[in-house]
C-alpha cells in the first residue's frame, strides 16, 4: 500500500531456512578452510536481497563454488544427511557460462527455496555450483540415492525447469560412487 514502509510489510516465509556457502580455492589451505558460510535466510525477500548482493555465477573466478543447503546440512559428502545420497549433475559446455549458467543457477535456487518437487522436496539437501575452466557444473543433491521414486521425480522436474530438451540427458550419481571412482568413470544410477 502507498505510504507503507517496506519494513512494515510481512515477509513471505520459506518452508526451510537455507545457508549459502562460498568456496574459494586456495591451495595453501585445506578444502574445509576454503569453504565459507556466507549467510542464512528463510524468507523470499531475504533471498532476493542476498541474490542481488553477491556476484552472479558467471562472474566467479574459476575454481570457486556456491553451495545452497538446508540449514544444518554441510555441503560435503561426509555430512550425515548427504552420505547415503547423490546428485543430479548438469555439466555445461564452456560457452554456456555466458549463455546459460546464471539462468540455470537461478532456476536451481528457485526450485529449492520454492519446494518445487512436491512430496519429494524433503529429499533435497542442497545444490552446488562449480565454476571451472574446463566447464561449469551444477548439481542438486538429495539425501537417499536408493529412493528411486523421489530421485527420479526430482530429476524430471529439475530437467523441465531448466528447459532442457528431450535430446539432453542428465545423470544421477551416488556420492559413494563419486568418492570411490575417478570423475570420468562415475556411473549414473539414474538418467532422465
Amino acid at each position: 500500500p502507498k505510504g507503507l514502509g517496506l519494513e512494515m510489510v510481512e515477509k513471505h516465509p520459506l518452508q526451510n531456512r537455507w545457508a549459502l556457502w562460498f568456496f574459494k580455492n586456495d591451495k595453501s589451505k585445506t578444502w574445509q578452510a576454503n569453504l565459507h558460510l556466507i549467510t542464512k535466510f528463510d524468507t523470499v525477500e531475504d533471498f532476493w536481497g542476498l541474490y542481488h548482493h553477491i556476484q552472479p555465477a558467471s562472474k566467479l573466478t574459476p575454481g570457486c563454488d556456491y553451495c545452497l543447503f538446508k540449514d544444518g546440512i554441510e555441503p560435503m559428502w561426509e555430512d550425515d544427511q548427504n552420505k547415503r545420497g547423490g546428485r543430479w549433475l548438469v555439466t555445461l559446455a564452456k560457452q554456456q557460462r555466458h549463455t546459460d549458467l546464471d539462468h540455470f543457477w537461478l532456476e536451481t535456487l528457485l526450485c529449492l527455496i520454492g519446494e518445487s518437487f512436491e512430496q519429494f522436496s524433503g529429499d533435497v539437501c542442497g545444490a552446488v555450483l562449480n565454476v571451472r575452466a574446463k566447464g561449469d557444473k551444477i548439481a542438486v543433491w538429495t539425501c537417499e540415492a536408493d529412493n528411486r521414486d523421489g530421485v527420479t521425480h526430482i530429476g524430471r522436474v529439475y530437467k523441465e525447469r531448466l528447459g532442457l530438451t528431450q535430446k539432453v540427458t542428465i545423470g544421477y550419481q551416488a556420492h559413494t560412487d563419486t568418492a570411490s571412482k575417478s570423475h570420468n568413470l562415475t556411473k549414473n544410477k539414474f538418467v532422465v
Binding site: L6, H12, P13, L14, Q15, V44, E45, F47, W48, G49, Y51, H52, E107, L110, C111, I113, G114, E115, S116, S121, R161
Partner: peptide, 20 residues
C-alpha cells in the same frame, strides 16, 4: 501447511525487494 512457491511468484518479488 507446507510453504511452496512457484517460480513466477518468487520472481515477482525480485526487484521490489532488490534494494532492501
Amino acid at each position: 501447511e507446507k510453504k511452496r512457491y512457484d517460480r513466477e511468484f518468487l520472481l515477482g518479488f525480485q526487484f521490489i525487494f532488490a534494494s532492501m
